[in-house]
Design a protein around this nucleic acid. Sequence first.
RNA 1: UCCCCAAUAGCUCAGUCGGUAGAGCAGGUGGCUGUUAACCACCUUGUCCCUGGUUCGAGUCCGGGUUGGGGAGCCA
Length: 461
Amino acid sequence: MATRTRIRSALAGEGLGGDVTVKGWVRTSRVGKEVAFLAVNDGSSLASLQVVAEPALPNYPEVCAISTGAAVAVRGRLAESPAAGQRYELRAAEIEILGPADEGYPLQKKRHTFEYLRTIAHLRPRSNTFGAVFRVRSSLAQAVHRFFAERGFLCVHTPIITTNDCEGAGELFRVTTLDLARPKLVDGEVDFSDDFFGEAAGLTVSGQLEGELFAQAFSDIYTFGPTFRAENSNTPRHAAEFWMIEPEMAFADLRDDARLAEEFLRHLCRHVLDHCQEDLAFFNDHIDRGLVARIEGVAGSTFAMMEYGEAITRLQRAEVAFEYPVEWGLDLQTEHERYLTEQVVGGPVFVVNYPREIKAFYMRQNDDGKTVAAMDLLVPKVGEIIGGSQREERHDLLMARMEETGIDPASLWWYLDTRRWGSTPHAGFGLGFERLIMYLTGMENIRDVIPFPRTPRHAEF
RNA sequence: UCCCCAAUAGCUCAGUCGGUAGAGCAGGUGGCUGUUAACCACCUUGUCCCUGGUUCGAGUCCGGGUUGGGGAGCCA
């Protein structure tokens, strides 16, 4: 058959009145003696194209037997539809059944639970919801790159295999070619000097440290790639493999960092509103009633900023019984974060300058000696969505902080080197890509915004 | 890892007081129709998650387990 027209284009009337060929998968069929209708979808849009088949077709009996899930190629005339429900339809002159589907096809025309669809992750992208999720995911990924490209940020591919184990010991996935049945032991411990890299290696938990190195050469950089956590987290918000977006800016402080985060999130909200309207309307109707209004709210708002100390005071004054204690020096729990963004501010809010004891070693110490230049962006419904900080650029203070937190400076000699030669104030943040997708689609389980999710006990497909 | 909930037809679920299994959808057959996740009639489909116990009798009650989900912690 002739050149394929994407169904998205056909639905927009492209080729109206002329000869058009589409190829896709049958979503539903409605069959009669005088006429049959096939809804055909090729993934280019949420909506399917109605194909009209008449008995004059040489293979009309076979066409009538086509069931949900079959792959077809249809050539015909694209015409205005006489019936309500669609503007255009394809009057078939020829229907080729490329790949039939029998009654065992697991995706039915009716609603399925997400739990069930996870067990058929190889087929669920053919469903309405997952089609929409993965179109939005793709669009957002491109929007992320475009946002940074437009601002002159360098895209750096930080390593996936790493020998840093200083960011949090037990959560690293081990990467090894050693014989697991008989590893060489020295004093009862596995001897990794025989391993592929000559030392213990694992999958990265963050590209930040390497990102900082590149920021000290290219000024503004970002990394956007997969990260891995071996934590036994069983929640709808955690996965063992997920994607992170981590920009890093030299010659920048916490204010600059917050400004970038704010622009970034607003830009992505604007992006889905402008470019994913059909899918967003679907989510708004079927998944999360207030979705579009909430995204419009964030896209149009200026984000508030609040000191950690003030946040504590506000929480202590709140006439709400929190499950976890509120006290200066303790970290904010999800319930606290949501109270701040939903009740106190009523919109996105940065909480800044956290106690140094509850934050990572690389965050810049403030002059008060008690806090570090950290920021969390809290948004309604989810709580923290972005975490960032100004980094400690002063060599002596960074060394002292590493010793305090039990990190061997020798293992991060290259990181410390950037503070020896041409050190600059710099800052960056991290955003979990899946959490962003969840926020912008209303999907409530991270397993349903990753094509093939990896969670404890699950790495199928 | 801790706490809570759930598991019944291919899918979504109901199943009363403990009395031997039911609906819708899917599938099959027939009908009807420019249909809209079409409609109408008839038909098919069960390791009631596994295991042990209580009982004359367990889908139902109790213990243990498995799997899934939710909440929490960790965090992105």
